[in-house]
Every structure is written in structure tokens, then in C-alpha cells.
Design a protein around this nucleic acid. Structure first.
Length: 311
DNA sequence: CATTTCACCTGGTGGC
DNA sequence: TGCCACCAGGTGAAAT
């Protein structure tokens, strides 16, 4: 057993280890927007799947068969999932010269391609000639000549194909943190006996919050990560809701400017690191009160907080 | 049922 | 130089 907390060496090691932000709600939102801008309206001409084992929720053969020939109507986000709406594209020609808004579809979708990036997944739009990165698991050749590629070294990502004629569309189980209201937010945690941090990470309650934004929002709300969720006061819950919304919005704003870098190149880089007030700042002084930031483990995840500012 | 723990997976890193 | 243990974390299954 080796303790980590407080050692400046370990904090630096952690930082150096990741030059890419984990895909949580803001990153997925940014990626979905970027990919949408590049591929909407394009037709999937040919599909290649590379992995033999199972990073896929739907078997690769079935996905390939389903995807080929369909037109990408729009790319959206639900929680941490990227949802690619697909249709026959039959009506496409009538609209060829008409600019499309993000949420406008040409015709009703007949299928969906769900992409979850896991920890290290990337969804890239490239030329077919672009070098194929290691751990490329899927390549969708588009009629325009571009390629949509799914790359995921750690294989925590998931790909799923849904035929909407056979079943319903994908719905994230949890509420959207950007739009949930005061009462509904409070109701999520009522009577719950687990740590608030664990509750924030539970995707069936809130969809899209991961380790970074859980820590950052708890810091901004002044709430300790280990507090029992059901024991938070109304005021604390409202502070948390607003802090979470604010921190996610801020990250999305920041991400917007780096979309082009991301989609064509190599990942979500430098999105939000500079804004981190507690995440991976173990041992460094709190930006408010100078108290060293503490690292503990909650719900099996490294958790960072200020013992002075968070009660 | 609610909650907790753990396996999955790879690359970067430090220690020896 | 090389080898190896450790660790990051989203998710879902298994355990409690």
C-alpha cells in the first residue's frame, strides 16, 4: 500500500500522465458539434470494423450492415453518449443547397449509431489517406470522400447500432445537468445514503458528470465529496446545481474554440485544465484560502477537495 | 432494492 | 538498457 496524497511528486506524475481531458459532458458536446458540422448530410458508403473482441454493444457485422447506405442526418449528445441520427437520405436532394441548422433533420431517422468514448475514445473526421492511428476500431467511408474514424486505445468505449424500426431510440437514463430544475435536482438525492460525489457520478441520476466536473462542482458549491447525498440542505443542493451547470457551460464555451483542432487532429487537449481549482491539484494551495488541496478516494475514484472551503 | 467493490484495458512513469 | 508494478477512470457485473 502506497499512499499518494500530499506527495508533490505523485501529483506531478498524475498531471504529466494525461495531456488529454477525459470525455465528460462538455467534451462530448464539443465533439458532437464538431463532427456534426463536418459530416451531417453525408452518406455512409462503406464501413470497416477492425476489432475482433468486443468494444461493441452491437456485433460489428450487424453494425456494418446497418450503417452502410444510410445518411447522417445530425449528430447529437445525450449524457456522455454521441448519438448519430441516420436516415434513408431520400429527401436529401431536395435540400442540397439549403443550409441546415443543428437540430433540423431532413427526414425522420430510421436508425441511430451510438458512440461512447469511454476514457480514451476519439471520433475523428479525416481524409481516407490520413495515417490510421493505432487502435482504430472503426472507419466509416463517407460519400464526400471523408472518413469518420473511431479510435480507442483502452477499449472502454462502446459502439451501438439501433434500428428504430425495431425498437426505440437511445435515451440517456439520467437527467441532463444543464437543464434540470431546482426541484427535480433535489429529488434525485432525497433519501440517498451514498456520498454526494458517488451520486453525481451515477449516470442513472445525472447523465454526463464524470470525475473532473464532480470534484470541480463540489468545490464551487462548498460541499465535501463524502457528505451523504440525502443529508444535503436545500441551499447546498441549489448551490451544487448551479455550480455544476456553470462549470459545464464554461467548459463547453472553452471547448468550442478548439473543436477544429480536435476533430482533425488528436484529441481533447487543454480544454479545461487551466480552470481546474481542485482536480489533480493535490498538495497545492487552495485558490481561495491557501489550504493544501486534499486527495481521498470516494466511490473508487480519486477525489480532490479543499478541507477548509468545503464542508 | 440500494450501495459498494472490482474487472476491464493500455500507456506513461518511476524504481530498481 | 530493460523489466515490472502501479495507476488513471467510465461502466457494468458481481458482491454485500
Amino acid at each position: 500500500m502506497r499512499s499518494h496524497s500530499g506527495s508533490p511528486g505523485s501529483a506531478m506524475r498524475c498531471r504529466a500522465q494525461y495531456n488529454r481531458t477525459m470525455p465528460e459532458l462538455p467534451e462530448v458536446e464539443t465533439i458532437a458539434r464538431g463532427v456534426n458540422a463536418r459530416v451531417r448530410g453525408d452518406r455512409i458508403a462503406e464501413v470497416w470494423f477492425g476489432s475482433h473482441r468486443e468494444p461493441f454493444k452491437t456485433p460489428a457485422v450487424q453494425q456494418a450492415r446497418g450503417l452502410e447506405g444510410l445518411t447522417i442526418l445530425v449528430v447529437n449528445r445525450k449524457g456522455k453518449h454521441i448519438v448519430v441520427e441516420l436516415g434513408s437520405g431520400a429527401a436529401r436532394s431536395q435540400h442540397r443547397n439549403k443550409p441546415l441548422d443543428r437540430d433540423e433533420t431532413i427526414d425522420p431517422p430510421t436508425a441511430e449509431w451510438i458512440v461512447h468514448l469511454g476514457m480514451t475514445g476519439r471520433l475523428l473526421v479525416t481524409t481516407p489517406a490520413a495515417p490510421v492511428a493505432a487502435h482504430t476500431h472503426a472507419r466509416l467511408t463517407l460519400a464526400s470522400g471523408r472518413e469518420l474514424r473511431f479510435v480507442d486505445p483502452r477499449r472502454f468505449g462502446r459502439l451501438e447500432f439501433r434500428d428504430l424500426r425495431e425498437g426505440g431510440g437511445f435515451g440517456a437514463p439520467g437527467a441532463e445537468p444543464l437543464t434540470i430544475g431546482t426541484q427535480a435536482f433535489a429529488a434525485l438525492f432525497r433519501g440517498r445514503r451514498l456520498a454526494i460525489k458517488a451520486a453525481l457520478l451515477n449516470q442513472t441520476l445525472l447523465a454526463g458528470v464524470g470525475n473532473i466536473y464532480a470534484d470541480e462542482s463540489l468545490f464551487r458549491a462548498g460541499v465535501r465529496p463524502r457528505r451523504m447525498a440525502g443529508r444535503l440542505t436545500r441551499a447546498e443542493l441549489e448551490r451544487l446545481r448551479l455550480a455544476l451547470r456553470e462549470v459545464l457551460k464554461q467548459a463547453i464555451r472553452r471547448g468550442g474554440s478548439s473543436v477544429s483542432d480536435y476533430v482533425d487532429a488528436d484529441g481533447v487537449r487543454g480544454f479545461f485544465q487551466l480552470e481546474h481549482r481542485v482536480y489533480q491539484r493535490t498538495g497545492e494551495p487552495c485558490l481561495i484560502c491557501k489550504t493544501p488541496i486534499q486527495r481521498i478516494v470516494v466511490a473508487g475514484r480519486s477525489t480532490h477537495y479543499c478541507p477548509q472551503c468545503q464542508r
